[in-house]
């Protein structure tokens, strides 16, 4: 399956004859990026720019951390070069990027404001830019990793990562299949001045909840959505999970919300916070997020230590 995918991705290898001794050397090839745009990729990559934390994590996971010359301000920077350039997530400093002379920019759909391509000028300057829209499924995350491995010349490493991940997914799914009474879960990803955000289907987080054997109370909706307080109360979830780990005292604040005291999750003290980074970034680290959610929902079934 994955092999087929790679075969489809690599539409054509542009074979360039170089030198005059009849030696054939491949210096660039064309791929269709994850947004559907054809991009010419150089084979000899030494400088990479990554503009989203998920991509940065994948690149580090592929062992290419020391090739990164610039990352966005939300990306992890531990273990990377100390004088790495930090760029804005939106409206990146194009002049700075060009002066760094990267071979490739691994960009995210999140960098865009509307349909404008923030890296248009880079493309015109002859720098390869591949777009990776945010994944909406676990398979999408695996495909993104495969794709990044392909364009950065780390096909084998990518293959190892995705195979391992798939094995872990399968193991978790096998445990989940043994769970008889499934819990209803309200998963909160944001509280902006009282406007609450959760998600329905077509999101990888919904798959995470389903994979570990939970039942998302908003599985009849799709995509990211804001939800009303009384609707949450009327759906009476068994467990509340939030990944707002950057908000201090978030569990206490959710439990003390007016009207929430009738929700079973609050009555039974089943409100948990999980790591915001590993549950929101489409990289190999999603497995840590999955484990946290699994242990929160079913501590008797899962134990990953």
């Amino acid at each position: 399956m994955r092999k087929l995918f790679i075969a489809l991705l690599v539409l054509t290898f542009v074979i360039t004859l170089s030198g005059c001794k009849g030696e054939i050397e491949v210096t660039e090839f064309t791929v269709t990026d994850r947004e559907g745009t054809e991009v010419v990729i150089p084979t000899n990559i030494t400088k990479i720019v990554s503009t989203a934390p998920s991509n940065t994590e994948v690149i580090i996971g592929l062992g290419l951390g020391d090739m990164l010359v610039a990352v966005d301000k939300y990306s992890p920077t531990e273990g990377l070069s100390e004088d790495i350039a930090i760029i804005n997530f939106r409206e990146p400093d194009i002049e700075l990027l060009i002066s760094l002379e990267p071979d490739i920019v691994v960009a995210s759909g999140h960098n865009k404001v509307g349909d404008d391509d923030p890296f248009k000028l880079l493309k015109e300057a002859g720098i390869a830019v591949v777009y990776i829209p945010s994944a909406d499924s676990l398979q999408g995350i695996l495909d993104d990793i495969t794709f990044i491995g392909l364009v950065l010349g780390k096909v084998e490493e990518a293959n190892t990562i995705t195979t391992d991940l798939q094995t872990e997914f399968d193991e978790i799914a096998a445990i989940a299949a043994t769970i008889t009474t499934k819990v209803n879960v309200y998963f909160e990803i944001g509280d902006y001045s009282g406007t609450l955000y959760s998600f329905g289907t077509e999101t990888f987080l919904n798959e995470v909840v389903t994979l570990v054997g939970g039942n998302n109370i908003y599985s009849s909706e799709s995509g990211w959505l804001n939800v009303s307080v009384e609707d949450i109360i009327s759906k009476n979830p068994d467990v509340i999970v939030t990944n707002q780990s950057n908000v201090e005292g978030i569990v206490a604040s959710i439990m003390s919300r007016t009207g929430f005291d009738t929700i079973d999750a609050v009555i039974n003290n089943q409100v948990f916070v999980v790591n915001g980074n590993s549950t929101s970034r489409g990289s190999q680290n999603i497995i840590e997020g999955i484990r946290e959610v699994a242990e929160a929902l079913y501590p008797n079934y899962y134990d990953f230590d």
């Binding site: 001045s193 009303s228 950057n246």
Partner: peptide, 20 residues
């Protein structure tokens, strides 16, 4: 930066989660 959403949502006006 990160707090952009909080400010924008406050400005848009909402009566959600307002209690006694």
């Amino acid at each position: 930066g990160d707090e952009l959403k909080n400010i924008i949502f406050w400005q848009m006006g909402s009566l959600s989660l307002r209690g006694y």
